Each structure stands twice: as structure tokens, then as C-alpha cells.
Deep mutational scan, measured.
Amino acid sequence: YKPCFVCQDKSSGYHYGVSACEGCKGFFRRSIQKNMIYTCHRDKNCVINKVTRNRCQYCRLQKCFEVGMSKESVRND
């Protein structure tokens, strides 16, 4: 598999339409299922990588959408 499109960590396969790691897969699923609203405490362009991905949930979710993750493919079960 290609590296995670969101944070470049080791991917566990294709999730919600893109190559993603377990961490970003779970983060995206929880964010969508719980209708989470995050805020960025900087200027909405935080670097998201394996080391920084937990620092800003707003920018991490934005990057999930930017790389093509589909909220329609998240099931509500």
C-alpha cells in the first residue's frame, strides 16, 4: 500500500476512498459519526504528519477531506 495520504505513516489499506493508516481511519470515522466540530488555534494550515497529526484535529480533518476521504462511505453502525 501507499503511505497514509493524510499523515504519511504506514498505511493499513484503503479506507474511505484513500490509502490511510489505522489512526487516521479511526479519527475520520469518529469525527464523522459524532459530527465533531473542531477549531484550529493557529492559522488553519498546520502541518499534518506522523509526529504532528494529534496536535490539531481541525487541520487533520481538513486534510482528510483534501486527500479525498469520503464521509458518505462512513457507516453509522
Rank of each mutant, 00 (worst) to 15 (best):
C7S: 01
C46L: 02
C4Y: 03
R53K: 13
K10C: 11
Q62G: 05
F5W: 05
Q8M: 12
C64I: 02
T39G: 07
I32T: 07
K34Q: 15
F5A: 12
N45S: 09
G13A: 05
S12K: 06
Q33K: 10
S12E: 10
V51C: 06
N76G: 09
K34I: 04
V47P: 12
E66T: 11
M69G: 01
Q62S: 11
I48Q: 04
F27L: 01
E22H: 04
G17M: 06
N49A: 05
N54T: 15
D77N: 05
C56E: 02
S73D: 14
Q33P: 01
S70Q: 11
K71G: 11
C46S: 03
E22G: 05
Q8V: 03
V51E: 15
D43F: 10
Q33W: 08
V51S: 11
Q57Y: 15
V47M: 13
N76F: 10
H15P: 05
C64Y: 00
F28A: 03
R75V: 12
H41R: 08
V6H: 02
V47H: 09
N76L: 11
H41T: 14
D77C: 13
S12T: 13
V51N: 10
Y16E: 15
D9C: 03
N54L: 15
N76D: 11
T52A: 13
M36K: 11
V74C: 11
S19H: 10
K2E: 05
R29F: 11
C46W: 02
D9Y: 03
F27C: 02
F65G: 04
Y38W: 05
V18C: 08
K44Q: 15
D77M: 11
Q8F: 08
S19R: 08
R29V: 13
S19N: 08
S70M: 08
Q33E: 10
R29G: 09
Q8T: 11
Y58G: 07
V18M: 06
K50L: 14
Y58H: 08
I32G: 03
E72M: 08
D9H: 03
Q62K: 14
S70F: 08
T52S: 12
K63W: 01
Q33H: 07
C46D: 04
I37T: 08
Y1V: 15
C4G: 01
K44I: 11
S70K: 13
S73Y: 06
D77H: 13
C46K: 00
V67L: 08
N54E: 15
C59I: 03
V51L: 15
Q57K: 06
T52N: 12
C21A: 01
V51I: 13
M69Y: 03
G26I: 09
K25N: 14
Q33I: 12
H15D: 12
R55P: 15
E22D: 10
Y1C: 11
C21N: 03
V6L: 01
K10F: 12
V74Q: 10
H41Y: 07
Y14L: 11
F28L: 03
L61S: 00
G13H: 05
S11Q: 05
R55W: 14
I32A: 07
S11W: 01
V51R: 07
M36S: 11
C7D: 02
V74P: 09
G13K: 05
G26S: 06
C46T: 03
V51M: 15
Y16S: 09
I48D: 06
D77L: 06
S31W: 08
R42I: 08
G17Y: 14
G26C: 08
K25P: 01
I48L: 08
C46M: 02
S31T: 14
C21P: 04
V18D: 03
H41A: 11
M36L: 12
Y38A: 03
P3D: 15
S11H: 03
P3T: 09
A20S: 09
R75C: 15
N49D: 15
G26L: 05
C64A: 05
S19M: 11
K10E: 13
Y58C: 12
G68V: 01
V18H: 04
T39M: 13
E66R: 11
K2T: 12
F5S: 09
K44F: 05
I32V: 12
V47F: 08
C64K: 01
R60M: 15
Q33N: 13
R53F: 13
V47E: 14
C46E: 04
G17T: 06
N49F: 04
K44A: 11
C21I: 00
V47Q: 12
E72W: 05
C40S: 01
H41K: 08
K50Q: 15
G68F: 06
D9R: 03
D43S: 10
K63G: 03
K25D: 12
R42W: 14
C40A: 00
T52F: 06
K50A: 14
K63A: 05
M36I: 06
R55C: 14
K34A: 11
G13Y: 06
S73N: 07
R55G: 15
A20M: 06
D9N: 01
N35D: 14
N49V: 03
S19P: 09
P3I: 10
N49Y: 04
R42S: 11
Y16W: 07
I32R: 02
D43A: 12
C56I: 00
N54I: 15
K50H: 13
N54Q: 15
N54R: 12
C64G: 02
N35T: 12
R29S: 13
H15Q: 10
Q62N: 09
R42V: 15
C4W: 00
F27R: 00
G26V: 08
C40T: 03
R53V: 15
K25S: 14
R75H: 13
F5Q: 09
G17H: 05
E72F: 05
K44D: 09
K25I: 13
M36T: 12
D77P: 13
H41N: 08
Q62R: 08
R60A: 08
P3M: 07
I32W: 04
K10Y: 14
R55I: 15
V51A: 08
N45T: 11
K10R: 12
Q57D: 15
M69F: 04
T39P: 05
K25Y: 09
R55D: 15
K2G: 07
S11F: 04
R29H: 15
V74Y: 05
F5I: 10
C59P: 01
R55S: 15
G68Q: 02
E22T: 07
G17L: 04
C21K: 00
Q62D: 08
Y58A: 14
Y38E: 04
D77R: 06
I48T: 07
C24R: 01
C4I: 00
K2W: 05
R42H: 04
K10G: 09
N54P: 11
C59F: 01
G68N: 05
N76C: 08
A20C: 13
K44L: 09
N35R: 10
S12W: 08
